[in-house]
């Protein structure tokens, strides 16, 4: 039915915002230099990963490291963050998160058509049938919030969840309270995560927007490991 195909479209406001922001953004022909680490702002909002998250040793095959070196990227930032990039702001459990548009597949509205997955971790809400895919949907708040904030979450997800953000080519759905807007970010606006952080899903934090920037690929890897 047509209903399925329309689900892949972005919200009108988001689509329009992305369109305008892109057209009005000066293209950047020159590769950017890495910002000096000393100028990184102090973060005030630092979400903590839930204890339910699996251990986080994600192997980096040597080949990947080689490719990164060949591309002469002299920083640890993801490929999408080598110059100005756009990110979608959304909220989960009251916490503002951002996902880079480069890793965003789409946004769908939350309906009560999620098939529950009994026996899985509590952050698995169930399975969403999206076009020809079965997409596991995560209660993002339960995955990223610290325990003290989890206690304040409304137990009924239908009361707080309005949208599902699809990442990793729609292999995962992140349920959220609301989708806000698209912002343009310069790499030096982000305080990038340190190499030894335990929160592999956290690409960095953006003080200006008081949000945590997701590393969609790492998030998906963590979820994949957790599912097994």
């Amino acid at each position: 039915m047509a209903e399925n195909s329309t689900k892949t479209l972005l919200d009108e406001g988001i689509a329009l915002s992305m369109f305008l922001d892109t057209l009005l953004r000066e293209p950047q022909p020159e590769p950017r230099e890495a910002p000096p680490a000393a100028q990184a702002p102090v973060l005030e909002v630092v979400p903590t990963v839930t204890p339910a998250a699996p251990p986080v040793e994600v192997a980096h095959p040597a080949a990947e490291v080689e490719v990164a070196a060949e591309a002469s990227v002299d920083n640890d930032r993801p490929a999408w963050a080598q110059e100005t990039f756009q990110a979608l702001l959304f909220k989960a459990g009251g916490l503002r998160l951002a996902v880079p548009l480069a890793e965003l597949h789409g946004i769908v509205e939350w309906h009560d058509d999620i098939t529950p997955m009994p026996g899985h971790a509590d952050f698995y809400l169930g399975l969403l049938q999206h076009q020809d895919k079965t997409v596991p949907v995560i209660d993002t708040a339960r995955f990223v919030l610290p325990a003290d904030r989890l206690a304040k979450l409304a137990p009924d997800v239908a009361e707080r969840i309005t949208r599902i953000v699809l990442i990793d080519e729609a292999r995962w759905g992140l349920a959220c309270d609301e989708v806000e807007r698209v912002v343009n970010l310069e790499p030096d606006q982000v305080r990038w995560r340190s190499a030894q952080t335990s929160r592999r899903w956290l690409a960095g934090t953006v003080v200006e927007h008081m949000c945590a920037l997701l590393d969609g690929a790492a998030f998906a890897q963590l979820l994949a490991r957790g599912r097994d």
Partner: peptide
């Protein structure tokens, strides 16, 4: 399409 800077 929506190429960066084409609005300027």
């Amino acid at each position: 399409g929506a190429q960066a800077g084409k609005g300027l």
